[in-house]
Design a protein around this nucleic acid. Structure first.
Lengths: 110, 110
DNA sequence: TTTTATAATCGTAAAATTACGATTAATGTA
DNA sequence: TACATTAATCGTAATTTTACGATTATAAAA
């Protein structure tokens, strides 16, 4: 029925999937790229850089924020976004561990 | 509406998002875990390990296969799945570069 | 050849995602 | 105070994802 059934999996599996899912759209990668380049960035600037409407970008920002990867600080009538260092490193590590756990085997498949 | 508009983004953004999306569900992380542990694995064994129906697991396997992260070799009336080393390393690298491009800034946000 | 086992595919339904325009809330400016 | 700007939220529609049971195709076994 389209539900995620998240209860059935381990916390780590859910965490990794959560980070990965947040990264699972080109627009959100593009947003992160802008933030990574400029260190910090006003929402409007991000909208200008992307081929998407303001409301759509805002939605993507919300998803990145909900995954914890970015944070937004209110600055007057603008909102300044930036990478959340702590969570970013956590995502890097959990995903890194997953990828590193592969040890090239002599026999590729059966 | 509801379309991905992938044409508007760079090939690299699309590629990273593609890998991340494939990893964006706990069931698929769980599947990969099984494959990483056992090196190679019969489809049926994966079904036994997961709290999902055979058809649902098959669907998740298909998505991982379409992203290139795994491959399936027919072995009699069974199908043996394993990590696709080349693509796995490519995903590791592209995602790794993204994560590493963050350099902790002195000023966290505005 | 018939039966059994394995795994993909089909059909279907519910839910989530993506996208946009319009509206709203909040803050700064005239 | 009235106006303008900024960004979130609402409402809506199309698409995609998730999930399952049922069916199908294939190959091994009886």
């Amino acid at each position: 029925m389209g539900l995620s059934k998240t209860e059935q999996f381990t916390d780590e599996e859910i965490l990794i999937a959560r980070f990965a899912k947040a990264l699972g759209h080109p627009a959100r990668i593009a947003i992160l790229r802008v933030l990574l380049e400029r260190k910090a960035c006003i929402c409007g600037d991000i909208v200008d850089e992307l081929p998407l409407s303001q409301s759509t970008v805002s939605q993507h920002l919300k998803e990145l924020k909900e995954a914890g990867l970015i944070q937004g600080d209110i600055d007057g009538k603008k909102v300044c976004y930036c990478i959340n260092e702590q969570v970013w490193k956590q995502a890097q590590e959990t995903l890194g561990i997953l990828f590193q756990s592969y040890t090239a085997s002599d026999t590729s498949c059966c």
